[in-house]
Design a protein around this nucleic acid. Structure first.
Length: 314
DNA sequence: CGGATTTGACCAGCGC
DNA sequence: GCGCTGGTCAAATCCG
């Protein structure tokens, strides 16, 4: 997941002087010069405008500085994440015994969560099995992620995790380690999309749904707005946007965890860089979606581009 | 009526 | 080889 690519960096908050200031600054009617009273008002207005422009410049500079800091932070985060992924992949290659199919779930008997393999592993558990079993299917990239979804109230009966994608349920199975049935979903938005999802309640905390994603979507997220139900907070797998409530946490599995406690894993990780990143994204997203903000931004831009439109009109 | 869901059957890997 | 298990298929059913 490349989070930085999702941030709309095109939103340049280094706004130039707003229309009000522009208008006052650039378009003072010249005819007032002949009137002493209006001249005093003009001087006063000019002073005030100057102070405001100074303030605006200061805020703009600060905004620019913050934007640069954010960019640097994103770059650092991605670099760190890549390092971590590489490190874990190397570790796993060293640790892994000769690959056995279907090994991980039977050996990982704590919460029957198949912590799969990310990336270039030569033999992953279920994914490779599927590719050998069903040659007509595309080879699914062994990118496996997990989402822990805290459900509320009546949601305890459903195995639906709304994450913004369209899923088609193709099977349900009661597994040995968990009395709650496991549901199998395929991405139905694009016929060629190889992504599969398994959803099962945590054996420790049945209010927690554990969604395991296999593969990567080869299409954009169909509908992000769909991903905000009232009873279930959602995450956007791949697109990686997280509800600010932090009720969902994801684990992009890069290494089999033998003793993952789903309960603890379900705890909100508000301190992690990912979550902070999400919050930044959410704020940026909220701003850009706010009609008032966009209107103000449009007004600012239009005021900047077409200052002559407001000459002496306000 | 078409798409989604359900559910029993089937398949293949694994351990004994 | 056999039984257990997880994963998938596909016909039946449901639902808007």
């Amino acid at each position: 997941m490349d989070y930085t690519s999702l941030i709309d960096t095109s939103l340049d908050l280094n706004t130039k002087p707003l229309r009000l200031f522009d208008g006052a600054c650039l378009s003072l009617p010249r005819e007032v010069e002949s009137n002493p009273t209006e001249l005093r008002m003009e001087i006063s207005a000019k002073q005030e405008t100057g102070a405001l422009v100074e303030e605006l410049k200061r805020v703009s500079a600060e905004n620019k500085r913050l934007t640069e800091m954010l960019t640097v932070m994103c770059e650092n985060y991605n670099a760190l994440r890549n390092h971590l992924t590489d490190y874990m992949n190397k570790n796993r290659e060293k640790e892994q015994s000769p690959p056995k199919k279907r090994k991980s779930e039977s050996s990982n008997n704590n919460d029957n969560l198949n912590l799969g393999i990310v990336g270039n592993n030569s033999e992953s558990s279920s994914t490779d099995e599927e590719s050998s079993k069903k040659p007509r299917e595309e080879v699914i990239k062994a990118k496996i992620s997990r989402a822990y979804v805290k459900t509320e109230g009546s949601d305890h009966s459903s195995l639906i995790v709304k994450d913004g994608y369209q899923w088609r349920k193709y099977g349900q199975k009661v597994t040995r380690d968990n009395p709650c049935p496991r549901a199998y979903f395929k991405c139905s938005f694009a016929p060629s999309c190889p992504v599969k999802k398994k959803v099962q309640r945590s054996v420790d905390d049945q209010s927690v749904l554990v969604a395991t994603y296999e593969g990567e979507h080869n299409h954009p997220q169909p509908n992000k707005m769909e991903a905000t139900p009232s009873s279930t907070r959602t995450l956007n797998f791949g697109a990686a946007s997280l509800g600010s409530s932090g009720q969902i946490s994801t684990v992009e599995s890069t290494k089999p965890k033998s003793n993952v406690d789903a309960k603890s894993a379900a705890q909100p990780r508000t301190e992690s860089p990912e979550v902070k990143q999400f919050l930044v994204e959410q704020m940026a997203s909220s701003l850009t979606k706010d009609p008032n903000f966009t209107a103000a931004l449009a007004a600012a831009i239009s005021g900047r581009i077409f200052p002559h439109n407001h000459n002496g009109k306000w």
